[in-house]
């Protein structure tokens, strides 16, 4: 087995891993403001991809299609927040876990019936002719994934660190009641984070669809791995997800080759359970001090 072949597989896997990282980042965004996350995030990715495909059918120029797709994702994120999360947060319960699962189930069934159960190709103006960089083949589509993921994360992180609204995100996460007393509307902050998270999910769908095709089940495996990435990296670590995403992507690409393609999903799942066992707050997370 030539080394270059292994490297090639690891690299394509790692690029795929960036998509996991992007979806995982969507979890972190909402977790940051409300300690909640959307268990139906995968369905958001999928439905946004379908919707973008439908918008594309109208013949609008590609950049505008992408923009509308992101907007659709944001609106969907808002809908999830309103129907599934807000009530539970107000009651300080964890009911959102169940409710977001339910909403995901609904969206899945909706997509199945509206867009059909078959996988469809997702056209993109970006070429999929491989480029040879340092002896490794990479397609521009794959590169666009990497660029898109990193650009979005940089933008959002800059927002969180340099603007007052970004600091308000952290304040709401630290103490919801106290931030309300500062005039920061916790509800609106959480809404904003869900909208951002929905747009990030849509972006993930738009970036990954040209590679994987679009179908109702396109995101079910994706989201499990994003969960793994988020938990392994720690739900509070912005850039940790990139590292873990790259690693997991490479790992499973190799695992599917050496153990069998049916086991492709196993490394992420095992990693998740192991991470919980060894370091529950994630590799990049901070330890929690219990108080009485």
């Amino acid at each position: 087995m030539p080394v270059s072949f292994i490297v090639q597989m690891a690299v394509s896997g790692a690029l795929m891993g960036l998509v996991y990282a992007l979806v995982a980042y969507g979890f972190q965004l909402t977790y940051a403001t409300s300690k909640s996350l959307n268990f139906g995030q995968g369905e958001l990715v999928m439905v946004s991809a379908f919707a973008t495909l439908s918008i594309m059918g109208t013949g609008l120029p590609y950049p505008l299609v992408v923009l509308l797709g992101l907007l659709f994702g944001a609106l969907l994120g808002l809908a999830v927040e309103r129907t599934g999360v807000r009530l539970a947060l107000e009651q300080k319960s964890e009911g959102w876990i169940l409710l977001t699962i339910i909403i995901g189930l609904f969206l899945f069934s909706f997509a199945e019936n509206v867009w059909g159960r078959d996988d469809r190709p997702f056209p993109t103006p970006i070429s999929s002719q491989p480029l040879n960089i340092l002896g490794i083949d990479v397609t521009p589509v794959e590169l666009s994934v990497a660029v898109g993921v990193l650009a979005v994360m940089l933008l959002v992180e800059a927002f969180k660190r340099t603007t007052l609204l970004g600091k308000a995100f952290e304040a709401v996460s630290a103490d919801r009641d106290a931030s309300e007393l500062m005039g920061i509307s916790a509800t609106r902050t959480v809404m904003l984070s869900y909208a951002l998270s929905g747009a990030v999910a849509a972006l993930a769908g738009i970036l990954v669809s040209p590679i994987t095709t679009v179908g109702p089940t396109m995101a079910s495996a994706l989201v499990l791995k994003a969960f793994s990435v988020a938990v392994v990296a720690g739900l509070e670590s912005g850039f940790g997800v990139v590292v873990v995403g790259l690693f997991l992507g490479a790992l499973e690409s190799l695992a599917s080759f050496y153990v069998g393609s049916g086991w492709r999903d196993a490394p992420g799942l095992v990693l998740l359970i192991l991470a919980l066992a060894v370091r529950p707050t994630g590799v990049f997370g901070k330890a929690v001090i219990r108080k009485v």
Partner: peptide, 9 residues
């Protein structure tokens, strides 16, 4: 009551 400062900030 209880001050409620934003501990991580």
């Amino acid at each position: 009551e209880g001050r409620k400062v934003f501990a991580p900030l």
